[in-house]
Design a protein around this nucleic acid. Sequence first.
DNA 1: ACCTGAACACCGTTCAAGT
DNA 2: ACCTGAACACCGTTCAAGT
Lengths: 177, 177
Amino acid sequence: MSMRRIAADLECDPMAIYRHFPNREALLDAVADLALAGVVDPGPETPWDQRLSGILAAARSAALQHPGIAAHIAARPPLGVHGLRLAAGITASLTEAGLSPTAVVQTLQTLIAYVTAALAMAVNAGVRDERWHRVSQAMSGLPGETLPIVGSSEQFTYGLRLLLHGIRAEAAAGGSR
Amino acid sequence: MSMRRIAADLECDPMAIYRHFPNREALLDAVADLALAGVVDPGPETPWDQRLSGILAAARSAALQHPGIAAHIAARPPLGVHGLRLAAGITASLTEAGLSPTAVVQTLQTLIAYVTAALAMAVNAGVRDERWHRVSQAMSGLPGETLPIVGSSEQFTYGLRLLLHGIRAEAAAGGSR
DNA sequence: ACCTGAACACCGTTCAAGT
DNA sequence: ACCTGAACACCGTTCAAGT
């Protein structure tokens, strides 16, 4: 929620917020970046794939700890200091993996797309989205109990593993280009 | 935009809409599904990876032809008739690829996450998001002209290729499980 | 010069009042 | 019984009026 709601929680006039931020979006950007402050980059000593997974998983769980802001993180490019710091870590990992500069940027975009979507799913799925449950049941015919939960960290890890396979294949195929 | 706006365009009372749909979300779900009506599934004769790419790319471009509804498609599970039809096509492709039933459901979720995120990027990036441009520049040091455009179909295809690599690897590793 | 809060132009939805 | 539209409880933001 926002502006009036935040102002009420802060026990101040709604307009006082506009003294500090030009608009609602700027305020949410700032909060979003703050939510990523605690995410640690394992750094260049860690193997690139572990570093990559580490950053992405940590960013995901950090965002989920502030569910109110997760939707906004999911919707905007990471231009705050912490967002850029993590993007730099991912970029370094991908470069170390052997991708060309162009491939690094494309893969960075793909990864951010994936994390934000996984985040969005986790947020508006609660923990188990009844709607998703119905899709899965309709498709698979599996009993409900064994289905992977939408937006779960297991589900996130699975998709990330697919992408890591792709990155390795891409690096092997065109690394020097 | 919505309810009052739609009613104005329809030249009717805003409340008349509530005679046909219980709420705004139900209306948008219906419109979203309609937007996917024209997406054709190449069908089982087509090799699974081409079928998969075909469905996803077609769904993406169909959604982008109605930019007003793309954001909603990006935010909700595909439970309309056309959404389920496409999900069934994807499921069939993944099964043919050799994934286990559980892997099929997990991969389906991953793919939908990716498409919806790519869609969201394309929508709120216009065609070239100045914010994204800044991230990419900060990261890569490449001249702006050569950067892949955020939310472009080339960018979409690149990420999809990564995922297809992952699916093939997964099928080869654990197909019979 | 600074800050407050009334006011503007919205929104989705409810529900009493009309037919 | 059906439908309309006034009203409710919001929203982000502007801007005139106060100090």
